[in-house]
Simulated assay, not measured.
Amino acid sequence: MSNLNLHPLFRRSIGFDRLNDFIDYAMQSDAPNYPPYNIEKTAENSYRIVVATAGFLQNELLIHLENQLLTIEGKPESISEETVEYLHKGIARRSFKLSLRLDEHIEVQHANYENGLLTIELQRIVPEEKLPRQIPIGQKAMLENQQTSEKTINAE
């Protein structure tokens, strides 16, 4: 496997040193092919994950979010197959674990299960302090005075 060197990109960026680790992780792990799923962009800041879970009941599916890692698990209850002889078995009703890394401002809104499709709605919510803003030039003293007056007003 070839190793990517992203150090030339870091000359023009600050704080992206984790990106190299993320790309290494993505290149090492194989993309899962079961169960089939879609990742859809439904609006400017809205996303949807749709997972095809044919044959699963709602209580056999788990969704877990920890440290921006969304994990979807399917654990089917055991089915008695003592008298079943399959001529063709095309429905794969086996356990699965699908993990997707979310950006830091992506929040899970809700999940729905209907007609064998698990749908998870996501929303990008960027905090006010992270939105683009204009930085004044040469206004240090003016900003300090403004912050001091705001503290005085808040203290009253």
Rank of each mutant, 00 (worst) to 15 (best):
D30S: 15
L131E: 07
T152Q: 15
V126F: 02
R124N: 10
D30A: 14
N145M: 09
D103C: 06
V51S: 00
E44K: 09
I23A: 07
E85R: 02
S13P: 07
I91R: 08
R18H: 13
K89E: 00
E144P: 05
R12Y: 12
T83G: 00
H88D: 08
I63G: 03
N33D: 14
I153M: 14
D21F: 01
R133Q: 10
E77K: 10
I137C: 11
E66L: 12
D30C: 15
A155W: 02
L122A: 01
E82S: 09
A52D: 06
E73L: 07
L143G: 06
F10V: 06
K130D: 14
G55S: 00
Y25M: 14
F96A: 05
L19D: 05
R93G: 02
T42L: 02
E82R: 08
Y86Q: 01
A26M: 13
V126H: 05
A26D: 06
N20Y: 04
I153W: 10
I23M: 07
M142W: 06
G15D: 01
A26W: 02
I135E: 11
S2H: 09
K140E: 15
R124M: 05
S2E: 12
E129W: 11
F56G: 01
L131P: 04
N5A: 04
H7D: 14
K140L: 12
N154T: 06
N112K: 14
N154L: 12
S78P: 10
F10E: 08
Y34G: 06
L57E: 15
M27L: 14
E40M: 09
H110D: 14
T152M: 12
R133G: 03
L9V: 03
K97V: 05
H88P: 01
H7I: 11
E104S: 09
G15Y: 00
I106Y: 02
H64M: 13
R133F: 09
E73K: 15
K130E: 13
L70T: 05
A155E: 07
L4Y: 11
E40I: 05
A54W: 05
E104F: 04
E104W: 00
G15N: 05
H88Y: 07
R94P: 03
T71S: 11
N112I: 06
N145Y: 06
N38R: 14
M1F: 12
T53S: 03
R93D: 02
S29H: 14
P36A: 02
H105Y: 11
L19N: 09
P132W: 00
V51T: 03
L57K: 13
P132M: 01
